[in-house]
Design a protein around this nucleic acid. Structure first.
Length: 214
DNA sequence: ACATTAAGTGATT
DNA sequence: AATCACTTAATGT
């Protein structure tokens, strides 16, 4: 995507979310622009969350990690989306054991949490927005949960690829089997085997460091 | 040419 | 599905 004026991009996104004009101008004057490059950590379990991220361009990855450092991907955040979980963090003032990292070079609009409370009260559209993003995440995580519960790792992997494709807007996925394995908290060998199967079924094509979803 | 890293595979638990 | 042990292939120096 072309490097356009991010304020315009923000306005477009806010308008698409059907926010009231007053809310739109509040958000655009109060927030600040932040660019993070691929792999950078935006939120970690021990960081105080003082701002809510709204993705303008690029993709953020939301994941959990346990004591042993093993990772589990929760979901991707795309353009126009925000992290519902960080909103609750703000409201409760609690830290959550989760990471938000840049999946690719990403541009975000950081909204100070101090305003979130008042906007929830003042603006119907903002309430709707927050509830809706909750609903989307909830549904997404439900399907993730039952794919884990029923141990259909092959389906889980394919869902992962589709999610990733959706989030990045590209059918080309630049990841190694190893990286995918750690995100799904499984082993590389298993991922390689399942990807091989998907390749034989003609659903993907594989190259070094690269997977194409067909 | 050699070393390193990514991916493929059979056998075992 | 995870792990081990090993092979093969691609890439960097």
């Amino acid at each position: 995507m072309a490097m356009t004026n991010y304020h315009d991009r923000l306005k477009t996104l806010l308008t698409m979310s059907q926010f009231e004009d007053r809310l739109i101008s509040e958000i655009s004057t109060i927030g600040r622009l932040k660019k993070i490059s691929s792999g950078e950590v935006l939120i970690s379990p021990d960081s105080d969350i003082l701002e809510i991220p709204l993705v303008l361009e690029g993709t953020l990855k939301v994941s959990r990690k346990d004591e042993n450092g093993s990772e589990l991907l929760l979901y991707f955040l795309d353009g126009g989306e925000t992290c519902a979980m960080s909103i609750t963090c703000c409201i409760e003032g609690k830290r959550k054991p989760m990471y938000v990292t840049a999946e690719e070079d990403t541009v975000i609009w950081m909204i100070p949490m101090g305003y979130v409370d008042s906007w929830l009260v003042k603006y119907l559209s903002f309430r709707k927005f927050v509830f809706q993003s909750y609903q989307v995440r909830f549904d997404e995580m439900l399907s993730t949960i039952d794919s884990i519960a029923f141990m259909k790792l092959d389906e889980r992997l394919f869902r992962y690829l589709l999610d990733k494709k959706q989030a990045s807007g590209s059918y080309v996925i630049h990841k190694t089997h190893e990286q995918i394995a750690t995100e799904m908290n499984t082993s590389r060998v298993v991922v390689s085997r399942l990807l091989k199967k998907l390749e034989r079924e003609g659903r993907i094509e594989q190259y070094r460091n690269r997977i194409e979803v067909l």
